[in-house]
Design a protein around this nucleic acid. Structure first.
Lengths: 149, 149
DNA sequence: GCTTGACTTAGAGCATACTCTAACTTCTAG
DNA sequence: CTAGAAGTTAGAGTATGCTCTAAGTCAAGC
């Protein structure tokens, strides 16, 4: 295990930029990383594991503020494990709901695409029936955004 | 069909705020809505259908800029249908990829939660073996963010 | 006629998440 | 020894997506 990666190495491996890695450290998402002589960052394997976990949270749209809270709890020791678990459970529920919402909408997009295809069929050859306004369908929709918390 | 909803009605039905509805109209996401005497907006059923479609795009994280492009093509008539279809197909591919990424990460979260649970088991009763640093696992990760376009 | 309340507009302000600049230091190679 | 590449910091700037304010208009009720 190479427990001494430079910031550029880490950037390459994680897909984050060096800017972002420093930013995450500044705001407390990543604990202060070890330094080589001269002050350069040297990332340990444990730093990498944590960053990878952060990226999982980011992939699932956890806001940075919550990631920070989580990071702080983590820094406070094992006694915060239950609270961290609860945070993850809550987040997971959000994630699963979001996945389901996206699946639904992906289905609607597929239907729309199919509709466009059939429309192109009836327009391309020479059917002069081109006077339908398009966009005649959509299933009911239920979304709620504001003041739901 | 009540083809004459006020902005507040539409806000209630869509979960958007009146602010957001006006904003969407201003930036060209929604075509200028019909007005009652006095200038007040009156949304037709077709407006509602379009807004619901926009919400599908939003749910699937399409940026407003792309929605705008789509809206403009739509306003340009049926001849732009093929291009719109291509846009949707591209977007759908993104969405499916995102869903898969989220599914993966949701799995990792579940594993983490299970880990916390077992940890709590071994910490709660009175096992004084509480000196493991936690967080010892994570599967490989592959993400790419910058300069991939 | 006057107030009230819901609407209108243009434009300012805010939250989130980076992204970059400026000025400086330090390591490495020739 | 010196040039260049790569790193450092604090802080400014940018993109996105709203969200709200200020000032004004309009219809309806008292």
């Amino acid at each position: 295990m190479e427990s001494h990666l430079s910031i550029d190495e880490v950037a390459k491996r994680t897909g984050l930029t060096a800017y972002t890695l420093r930013y995450y450290e500044r705001i407390g998402l990543i604990a202060p990383v070890a330094r080589a002589a001269g002050g350069q960052r040297r990332y340990a394997a444990s730093d990498m594991a944590w960053i990878e976990f952060l990226l999982r949270l980011r992939t699932t749209n956890m806001p940075i503020g919550k990631m920070r809270s989580f990071a702080i709890l983590r820094g406070a020791g094992d006694s915060t494990a239950p609270e961290r678990r609860r945070m993850l459970e809550e987040h997971l529920a959000d994630v699963l709901a979001k996945i389901e919402a996206m699946r639904q909408s992906a289905g609607a997009l597929q239907a729309k695409i199919a509709y466009y295809r059939s429309l192109e069929q009836s327009l391309a050859p020479g059917s002069t029936s081109g006077k339908g306004d398009l966009d005649e369908h959509s299933k009911p929709l239920r979304t709620r955004h504001r003041k739901t918390a």
